[in-house]
Design a protein around this nucleic acid. Structure first.
Lengths: 361, 361
DNA sequence: TTGTACGCGTTATCAA
DNA sequence: TTGATAACGCGTACAA
């Protein structure tokens, strides 16, 4: 009866009493932080066992002045991208002995307060993309909380981890030009982060080839969002809004594919691309025969889609893992100068961008 | 200069000193937990502002004896299912003023220790499916840590939340029988949880109609896993292993679709079903013309797949949200008797199971 | 209305 | 080798 009550809240004092020693000795015996005679250790361990004592995390943290926990704030988990990054992060953090606290900002009103609370619970933070305002980032930096920015423009005194965007966007665009396409659309609005960098690369290459870059069509970064965008971009008419209309008129060789329909749709990510392909099929268009489509990320569905998606592979797991490692260095003080890490990406050419002799390994 | 050093570690003592009051008054002023004169409050708030004081979470938690945090342990985040549940959980937990600590068990060796550590950091736990052994669950229950089992068989003195499986599996199977199919395959091994319940329903209905239920073909619950399973199940020959061979021979009217190829493949979840469809296409089989395929969960891709997937909709967000609410009741002591909640599911008939006059709303 | 003092559960310092 | 005791930062009876 008493037995079933044990095992929940034994303190170090009870252990000490039961073992007939002081709490200092118990602590030393458990943490190997000082000399303890064999016999005493034996007694202590027995008492620990009998009481099934586990040191209170709060007590340990308070005394050590550390949480042994990291936080991460991300926008959403819909789609494989954030989930993969989160998994990579949690895995490494766990290896390094740190728990992970999460905060999703999707549809949250008082993000600032939630982030502040989170900061108070951890030894270091990862902030994903543009989930919080610059002011909050500044606040965290000033609080001397180790901070890693993930896929977000670097700031002073914080680490940054992201994957390469602009150069691979240029390579992607050049590849499409190599297919002979001359009219383009971009699906997915600037986000001030990764996507903006991608569009920068696309725009640069198009401009260099005398093609006026189109305005990106805003859409949610989901399959459904891509589907909506696809319906708009690929409809028989030249889009519905003024913006699309003008783009069709002002763009490069705009008449090649019919009334303003682009020959290639460059999508902000794979999910959007999958949505665009669905829309194309529904409109009776062949991909890539009537319109080429490209994605970004190389999620698993990209390989299995029909047609298989030409995309840019992003090391999602590694992004999370790298952030966890960088944060660990910052927390332990192994490194004091901030670093900015850019992970390499890889152009993956499959069939959604058109016929070609190359084969994916 | 001194200014930039402030803002990180001010304690309640410094605030009290600056405001010329005692720490008790500071605490009262901040927490509205006792009478404080207007003037005094003013002084305190100013001092708080100047020092940008934030009460230490550790101090608060230690004094209050609560973490204001929940834990959740799940197997993986690949695929939308777990991610959606996690989002629903985090959202509600956050609304209820609790942080969320996560632990993924995928590929982890010392799960037990990680779970124990987690338990020490939270006021309550959610355990997803069969991520941890029964012994660990027992340990948590005995430690009097409020516990909610998610999609796992209930145990004494812990809550359980899951979605209805068996009845909807029966409905799904009956629907397939209505299409006239008589040879079946099941993709995805028993997991001792949800899937086992689904197979129970399938088996019951098949047996009731004089059809010997097939052995489920084990596979990973991913698109790739489903693809592998599909290649095995739909190959021209009657599978490769003895098991499949026997099933083809012993099953119902096994010759209808060729050398043992089933007329319908019932998949453990949507991802598996998508993989099976890919395999079918690659083998030149038409879905549902040559073989019907069904999934489970109704992830977003199920609606967008071609053919659109007949499946059973599971309220993923709600699963997480309900677990968070149940856990909250347990933690606050609002409810002391355990409850077992079964969320309703819904058969979603689309085109992957064959032609029919019904239309999805 | 305010202040004193204790408790929360550790770790770690310093004497013994 | 061991023990008494001071932090750690806060909440809150209880006394004033």
């Amino acid at each position: 009866m008493a037995n079933s009550d044990e095992g929940q809240g034994a303190t170090i004092y009870e252990v000490a009493q039961r073992a007939g020693v002081s709490i200092a000795t118990v602590s030393r015996a458990l943490r190997n932080t000082g000399p303890v005679s064999a016999g005493t250790r034996e007694k202590v361990l027995r008492a620990v066992e009998e009481l099934s004592f586990t040191p209170s995390r709060l007590g340990v943290s308070l005394a050590q002045g550390r949480h042994a926990a990291n936080g991460i704030v991300f926008p959403d988990l819909s789609g494989p991208y954030f989930a993969e990054v989160l998994l990579g992060y949690e895995e490494v953090a766990s290896e390094l002995g740190r728990s992970v606290l999460i905060l999703s900002t999707r549809g949250r009103a008082a993000v600032q307060d939630l982030v502040r609370d989170l900061v108070g619970r951890v030894d270091g933070m990862v902030i994903f993309g543009r989930t919080v305002e610059d002011a909050v980032v500044d606040e965290i930096v000033r609080s001397r909380t180790p901070l890693v920015l993930l896929a977000r423009a670097p700031v002073e005194r914080a680490d940054a981890v992201c994957s390469e965007n602009t150069a691979s966007a240029e390579a992607l665009t050049a590849h499409l030009l190599g297919h002979g396409y001359s009219t383009f659309a971009m699906a997915g609005d600037d986000d001030g982060g990764d996507v903006t960098q991608r569009w920068t690369g696309v725009r640069r290459v198009l401009s260099d080839h005398g093609i006026r870059p189109p305005e990106p069509l805003p859409c949610e970064f989901t399959v459904e969002g891509g589907y909506e965008a696809g319906r708009t971009l690929l409809a028989g008419k030249a889009g519905k809004a003024g913006k699309a209309g003008r783009a069709g008129k002002a763009g490069g060789a705009g008449r090649a594919g019919g009334a303003g329909r682009p020959q290639a749709v460059i999508c902000a990510d794979d999910q959007v691309a999958l949505g665009v392909i669905l829309a194309a099929e529904e409109l009776g268009l062949d991909v890539p025969g009537d319109v080429a489509v490209t994605g970004w990320d190389d999620i698993m569905a990209a390989r299995h889609a029909r047609p298989a998606l030409t995309t840019v592979r992003q090391p999602m797991r590694l992004l999370g893992a790298s952030a966890a490692r960088a944060l660990d260095e910052l927390i332990r003080g192994t490194r004091t100068v901030p670093k900015s890490e850019i992970l390499p990406t890889q152009l993956i050419v499959r069939s959604s961008c058109g016929p070609h002799p190359l084969e994916e390994k």
